[in-house]
């Protein structure tokens, strides 16, 4: 079985986000790029499927700072093939990314394509369903459990309130992963270093990046909250006293 995982890199939200001088885009000059956390779950789910049923896992990422790290980390976890898609991906939307990925994935004869259900910087839908349609494959998102049997994938889809639906999808298919069946495994830095020596990254150039289908942003801004919490300051001891008073005031102590 041939499992392909697509991973996106996104700016780390732990870092301060700034708007560029044009006022309509994020200033990504100093952005720290990290793997989209849902894509990390997609990699984990891919590896779990391989461990259970055999096959290979190929991981694809666009060439941004941090792409090599993502790929070698995936290799250390058990990914077999690493592909970096070359091109200027800075600020590229999901429509362009999906079309570029599709051109590469077409050649890979995938049985199943996994990707994160969403990313925090999505503004034109998410990469998974866009790709699915480019490849004329079915798509199901919000998936938190997958098995494959006999040309079909049986999966669990999440709905609000904890309700799940078990669905059957013909393969090849694209699945948007909400959560892997277990938390993404931890790999030691030494194992990633080892993967750097033993595995190699194939580089392929994106044929073109066509963003058609995404919106044009006129203005980007940081939201001004309608309200802000009354902050309780002081040493831990003082804060704890004030919180106890507050609990009393609210009638729970």
């Amino acid at each position: 079985m041939n499992i392909i995982v697509l991973a996106k890199l996104v700016p780390d939200l732990v870092e301060e986000l700034t708007i560029d001088p044009g006022g309509a885009a994020l200033d990504l000059t100093f952005a720290r790029w990290i793997i989209n956390e849902f894509d990390d779950h997609a990699i984990e789910q891919g590896i779990l499927l391989k461990e259970r049923g055999g096959g290979t896992v190929t991981v694809l990422v666009p060439d941004l700072d941090g792409a090599d790290d993502v790929l070698f980390t995936a290799a250390a976890k058990g990914a077999d093939r690493l592909i970096k898609l070359g091109g200027d991906f800075n600020g590229v939307n999901n429509h362009a990314l999906a079309r570029a990925f599709a051109a590469v994935v077409k050649e890979l004869q995938a049985d199943l394509i996994l990707t994160g259900v969403q990313a925090h910087d999505d503004l034109d839908g998410s990469a998974g369903p866009l790709l699915a349609e480019c490849l004329q494959m079915p798509y199901v998102g919000y998936v938190s459990g997958v098995s494959i049997n006999d040309g079909k994938s049986l999966l669990r889809k999440e709905y609000p309130g904890g309700l799940l639906a078990e669905m059957e999808v013909t393969t090849p298919a694209v699945l948007g992963i909400q959560a892997a069946e277990q938390p993404p495994r931890y790999v030691a830095v030494s194992k990633v270093r080892q993967a750097m020596k033993t595995s190699s990254i194939e580089e392929q150039d994106a044929s073109s990046l066509d963003p058609c289908g995404g919106p044009t942003v006129g203005r980007m801004f940081q939201p001004e909250a309608a309200a802000h919490a009354t902050m309780i300051a002081g040493s831990p001891d003082e804060v704890a006293d004030k919180l106890v008073d507050l609990f009393k005031e609210l009638g729970v102590l």
Binding site: A98, D122, G125, P129, E133, Y142, P160, G176, G213, P215
Partner: peptide
């Protein structure tokens, strides 16, 4: 959501219509 997001992106590509999310 689990319903809308499964549909909107696919329709954008299929019908060649622009999509704004979130």
């Amino acid at each position: 959501s689990s319903i809308g997001a499964d549909v909107a992106s696919v329709l954008s590509m299929r019908l060649d219509l622009p999509l704004v999310s979130s």
